[in-house]
Simulated scan of single mutants.
Amino acid sequence: MSYMATIDLTAATFDETVENHDFVVIDFWAGWCVPCRQFAPTYEKVSENHDDILFTAVDTEAEQQLAAAFEVRSIPTLAIIREKVLVYAQPGALSEAGLEELLKTARELDMAKVHAEATPNA
């Protein structure tokens, strides 16, 4: 499977990727997963509509440590990280409209509030 508009994310590149990008979407997948293969073209298509978002893919077979860190129990699972904070992580393939709506919701988050809630007593 090859992603054109997405980059492969690994445990080795994770910290640097999140550090250098304010909006990261992660697709956890595996080659044997039929729903993952069916979702891939949708993910690819939507990624082309958002130049300001980094779309990444994690092969859960090759990156079991990274999948475990996100507690991925079923695939596909999508995760969204905004300004170094995990704001979404749910299993299940989405439709194109569903993925666009999810990105819109994530984009509209009040990140000052999210950061305040993520670091109580700060």
Rank of each mutant, 00 (worst) to 15 (best):
Thr56Val: 08
Ala68Tyr: 07
Asp59Ala: 08
Leu66Glu: 05
Thr6Lys: 10
Cys36Asn: 03
Asp27Pro: 11
Phe28Gly: 06
Asn49Ser: 14
Phe23Val: 15
Asp22Asn: 13
Thr6Gly: 13
Glu16Met: 08
Asn49Ala: 14
Glu19Gly: 11
Trp32Cys: 07
Thr60Arg: 05
Ser2Thr: 15
Gln65Phe: 02
Arg37Asn: 12
Ala12Ser: 14
Leu66Met: 07
Glu61Pro: 01
Glu16Arg: 11
Ala68Trp: 09
Gly31Cys: 04
Val18Asp: 11
Ser47Phe: 01
Tyr43Gly: 02
Lys45Leu: 10
Thr42Val: 15
Asp15Ser: 14
Phe23Gly: 14
Ala30Asn: 04
Gly31Lys: 09
Thr42Glu: 03
Thr17Cys: 12
Asn49Val: 09
Phe39Arg: 01
Val18Ser: 11
Trp29Lys: 09
Ile26Ala: 05
Ser47Tyr: 01
Thr13Met: 05
Glu61Gln: 13
Leu54Ile: 14
Ala30His: 03
Pro41Leu: 02
Met4Asp: 11
Leu66Thr: 07
Gln65His: 06
Glu19Met: 09
Gly31Ile: 06
Glu44Met: 05
Ala67Ser: 14
His21Ile: 11
Val46Gln: 03
Ala57Cys: 14
Tyr43Ser: 02
Phe28Trp: 07
Glu48Pro: 07
Ile53Gly: 04
Ser2Ala: 11
Cys36Val: 10
Val46Phe: 00
